[in-house]
Design a protein around this nucleic acid. Structure first.
Lengths: 358, 358
DNA sequence: ACGGTGAATTGGAACGGTCCAACGCTGTCC
DNA sequence: GGACAGCGTTGGACCGTTCCAATTCACCGT
């Protein structure tokens, strides 16, 4: 009762201590009053309408400037029923690969006036489990899932209502969800064929886990088979970590092994490739003279002069760009059939391969 | 006129092609209607009010479930004048350091029901230039700036209206803006004193740029001076890159140099330390037998077994946690004087240092 | 029988924008 | 001189919530 007579005073929101400086941010009405026009006219000015006289436009702009007015995005999107925001769900921001995709995404989305709202599933437990709820409550205009994702059921639910695109992963396949991914199988073939072209005949692969690990292994196997080297090819399992790569390489290179050891190794990713490099050096093998190595992902690890690894560059930036393109298309035609495209990788040559010793 | 009789039909928003599936998402009114209650009661249920009969509560919950209703965050925050969102501005997501800070931030913010809206100044040109405008339009409840920042004027403007905290940087100092940063000077002293304690007498520093570079150099100089080694200490300038570290190390270690060469080097960061490592190996020096190295930041580079660098761990997670604490406090008392705290780093010992050769 | 009490429920006014129909002007044309 | 067109401008409905005051209703004591 007493309170209703002093509406804009501090502590008006019932918190323990007064919020902000007690003064609410200026509204469109405040601007209108100051400029001596109606709020409708201010709205027209904000939208850059041409049917406003220069005099009033200037008055409005001055008032905006003087008051430091900023339109309220919530109010705006409430009536427009568009937030100009797309949700981006990642699962590990530590992965430099993601940043490339984000960069590619952003370049296009920004040009279309969309901002990105990022959530990291691993970093933010809530976002991982409950991202469906969060993004729906925020009424994002679209959703991009980057990499693998914790909760497929949740995604299916969101995808029914929201234009959705998966970037950098091959699954899950859902009715109206586009997929843009790296062509991992092709990249693995590229790496393997590079070793073969150098003259290597005993070639090994340090495998990774998950669907991506599967695809890269498949590419490796296809390449060795195509060149009749399947009999002398070996696959050791790793886990995508440096330690896993190290141990796999030790198993591969250990002299106690019955068969002759490989002269070329294609590793699942750069990290495990670095592990393999460590193992080789511990065993007194020179890279690339005694052992050729190829990694994958072309991370900045590969670019360290000390390591200088050949690596498959999976063009993540392009994946991001294309995913953005898909999302924009799907926002226009939400019921179009799901598309599925692969982006071709390239092999980046540095110093970790050479022809085998004669 | 004709339209007003068919309000919820597709294309109602006047776009070129129909948006979504033509059906608007359910609102609180729809839920109320279905449950046979008023919208006010639904609102009470949503807020978990105890003064709702069990029968009606259940009816409402069922209706929500059946319709797949999700409250509209924009409408909610419009009346509540709180978005439960804090803006996080970073300047390069590629930096693994940031991710740690974000993780620390998130752990506390999430527990207080706040979500993070991230913008990368380098990735998103608009966010970098115009983040002040964007965050103000979104009416975020607070702002965290992680690392350095492109536009100090913009920050000053925002900070007048918004609880603001700077994490991981020592500047700029503004009236109501708290600062939580790593104690770079102390970390540098730690690293340098470790070398001194091992018995090194000719110690060098590969410096970095900016305020942080300055602070670390200062810590180095303080330590050598305190131990009476200032005369034999050298500082070479680098730029925080691998290449810069490499070149600085070449200059330091080159035999043609007039003076005797250092036996211990403290580098500005892990990356330039890796560059120094490369240079040492090219010159035929063994690390750590001929040359001890210490890096900074304890990134995962340092943890690569192949490199296995001693490095100063600047406890970024803790920086994030404390920054979140500051922000929460400041949201309660926005006019409190600005605080400034430093987080103590620790030295992580691995394999890149040893006593100098006798 | 009646007012009082308190709990459960409801209508309606915000919140800060957009947008549409309608308005007052001025000038033009027949 | 009146109908009309077109321009610049405005009031008010609406978007989907929250919150407050008001209402209903059963129950109680007198």
């Amino acid at each position: 009762m007493e309170r209703s007579n002093e509406p804009a005073e501090g502590r008006g929101d019932g918190r323990v201590a007064g919020r902000a400086d007690g003064r609410r941010p200026p509204t469109i009405r405040g601007v209108a009053e100051r400029a001596g026009v109606s709020k409708s006219l201010v709205s027209l000015v904000l939208q850059g309408s041409p049917r406003v006289s220069d005099a009033k436009r200037q008055a409005v702009l001055d008032a905006i400037e003087e008051l430091g007015y900023r339109p309220n995005a919530a109010a705006r999107s409430l009536v427009a029923r568009r937030t100009h925001t797309v949700g981006v769900l990642l699962n590990d921001m530590r992965n430099p690969w993601f940043v490339e995709v984000l960069d590619g995404l952003n370049s296009l989305l920004e040009a279309h006036g969309l901002r990105m709202l990022m959530a990291d599933g691993r970093l933010d437990r809530r976002a991982g489990q409950d991202f469906a709820r969060t993004f729906q409550e925020l009424r994002v205009d679209g959703l991009v899932v980057v990499g693998t994702l914790p909760d497929t059921d949740g995604l299916a639910e969101v995808a029914e209502r929201l234009p959705t695109v998966i970037a950098g992963n091959h699954e899950p396949r859902l009715p109206h969800v586009d997929i843009v991914a790296n062509d991992d199988e092709r990249g693995a073939r590229l790496a393997t064929e590079h070793l073969i072209a150098l003259g290597h005949r005993r070639i090994a692969h340090i495998a990774g886990q998950g669907l991506v690990g599967e695809l890269r292994r498949r590419g490796f196997e296809a390449a060795v088979r195509a060149h009749g080297l399947a009999a002398s090819a070996v696959v050791e399992s790793g886990d995508g970590t440096e330690e896993g790569g190290y141990r796999a390489a030790v198993r591969l290179l250990n002299p106690s092994r019955g068969t002759e050891r490989p002269t070329g190794v294609f590793a699942f990713n750069d990290i495990s490739c670095v592990g393999a490099l460590s193992a080789a050096q511990e065993l007194g093998l020179d890279v690339p003279a005694d052992l050729s190595l190829v990694g994958y992902d072309n991370t900045y690890l590969a670019r360290i002069r000390h390591l200088w690894l050949n690596s498959v560059n999976n063009a993540s930036h392009e994946v991001g760009r294309r995913a953005a393109r898909c999302l924009l298309d799907r926002m226009e035609r939400p019921d179009a059939p799901a598309g599925h495209q692969l982006v071709a990788p390239e092999l980046e040559i540095r110093g970790s391969t050479a022809p085998p010793r004669p």
